[in-house]
Simulated scan of single mutants.
Amino acid sequence: MNVLLVEDEKPAAQKMTRLLKQTAPDADLVAITETVEETVNWLQERGEPDLILMDIHLDDGLCFEIFDTVKVTAPVIFTTAYDEYAIRAFKVNSIDYLLKPVNQKDLEKALSKYRAIHEKHNHGQAEYQHLLQEFSPAYKSRFLLKIGNRYKSVSVNQIKYIFSREGNVFLQSIDGQAFALEFSLDHVQKLLDPSEFFRINRNCLIHINSVEEMIAYSSSRLQLRITDEKPQEMFVVSRDRVPEFKRWMDR
């Protein structure tokens, strides 16, 4: 774990460094800052460590000014000779409040508390990611197409658009080939990631990378200029879908 020590008294900083090495050999003391200003600058430039050990009385004021200036989400173990700031400390990410002189036993307990919180947080994050993957829809990444007695695999990134014509559905690839699909356009739309494909009208789904330009069209509609395609009625965004289409393109 990366630890930032905020301490303006050199003997206290040296003692805390020694105690940290004895108590947590795996800890990496990334810096020692001595003032509110220096700590704020360090956090803004370097980002947050895993844990902060922080004295309350610093050379240029109380450490709480740090929290008023920069957002701090890292857990903090406060070390101080004063007990009157305990309530205030626990309002700003404090996991423990150690009175000086700090001894090894107290620091061990505080670090054990940090590890328990850290482990619980990581476990919760892992569970969240697992649930996210489990319940997120699995969109198609490619289509396996039958062409005569042959098969061809086409990645969704190779699709320019998908359209229906006279009751049949076709996939138009970026290399200019058209392939028949055995699905309805409604079904194909459910299979594809909506962040990449948009149903611009009743007959056409387009890939976002295929849109080169949008042109104002009659009655508040939009005509799209599709890569390597001549303008056609097929590439007109229906009036009722224009606002959503603009948001989709602008996200």
Rank of each mutant, 00 (worst) to 15 (best):
179 F>T: 00
191 L>F: 09
190 K>S: 15
185 L>Q: 01
168 N>F: 08
177 Q>W: 08
201 N>A: 02
180 A>H: 06
165 R>H: 08
172 Q>S: 10
174 I>V: 12
192 L>W: 07
160 K>I: 11
187 H>N: 14
201 N>H: 01
170 F>P: 03
178 A>S: 13
182 E>Q: 03
165 R>V: 11
190 K>Y: 12
161 Y>I: 05
190 K>M: 15
196 E>H: 06
200 I>F: 05
184 S>D: 10
172 Q>F: 00
190 K>G: 13
164 S>Y: 04
186 D>I: 14
193 D>F: 03
182 E>F: 03
187 H>S: 14
192 L>R: 02
186 D>A: 14
199 R>I: 00
176 G>Y: 06
186 D>K: 15
193 D>N: 13
188 V>C: 04
163 F>N: 11
199 R>D: 01
161 Y>M: 06
175 D>M: 13
184 S>R: 14
200 I>Q: 05
193 D>S: 09
166 E>P: 04
162 I>N: 05
166 E>C: 09
164 S>L: 05
162 I>E: 09
177 Q>Y: 11
167 G>T: 11
170 F>A: 05
167 G>V: 13
178 A>L: 05
197 F>L: 04
186 D>S: 15
175 D>W: 12
173 S>K: 11
194 P>N: 07
183 F>W: 05
201 N>Q: 01
195 S>A: 14
192 L>Q: 01
181 L>I: 04
164 S>V: 09
192 L>M: 00
167 G>S: 09
188 V>E: 05
190 K>D: 15
188 V>F: 09
160 K>V: 10
193 D>I: 06
173 S>N: 14
177 Q>V: 14
187 H>V: 12
160 K>F: 08
187 H>I: 10
196 E>A: 05
167 G>A: 11
197 F>H: 08
191 L>E: 08
197 F>G: 03
173 S>D: 15
169 V>R: 00
194 P>I: 12
193 D>W: 03
192 L>S: 01
198 F>V: 02
199 R>P: 06
172 Q>V: 00
195 S>Y: 06
177 Q>H: 08
185 L>G: 02
184 S>T: 15
184 S>K: 13
178 A>E: 09
164 S>T: 13
195 S>E: 15
172 Q>R: 02
200 I>M: 06
194 P>Y: 07
186 D>P: 04
174 I>E: 08
199 R>S: 10
161 Y>S: 05
185 L>H: 00
183 F>H: 08
178 A>H: 04
197 F>N: 05
187 H>T: 13
175 D>A: 13
186 D>F: 07
165 R>E: 09
175 D>E: 15
199 R>T: 02
184 S>L: 08
183 F>C: 01
198 F>C: 04
197 F>V: 02
161 Y>W: 14
186 D>Q: 14
166 E>R: 15
163 F>S: 08
199 R>M: 02
171 L>K: 01
163 F>K: 12
195 S>R: 13
161 Y>R: 14
201 N>D: 01
180 A>S: 07
168 N>L: 10
168 N>Y: 12
199 R>F: 05
199 R>Q: 04
185 L>N: 01
181 L>C: 02
189 Q>P: 04
161 Y>T: 04
173 S>Q: 13
198 F>L: 01
173 S>H: 13
196 E>T: 08
167 G>L: 09
174 I>S: 07
194 P>E: 05
184 S>G: 15
185 L>F: 04
181 L>V: 03
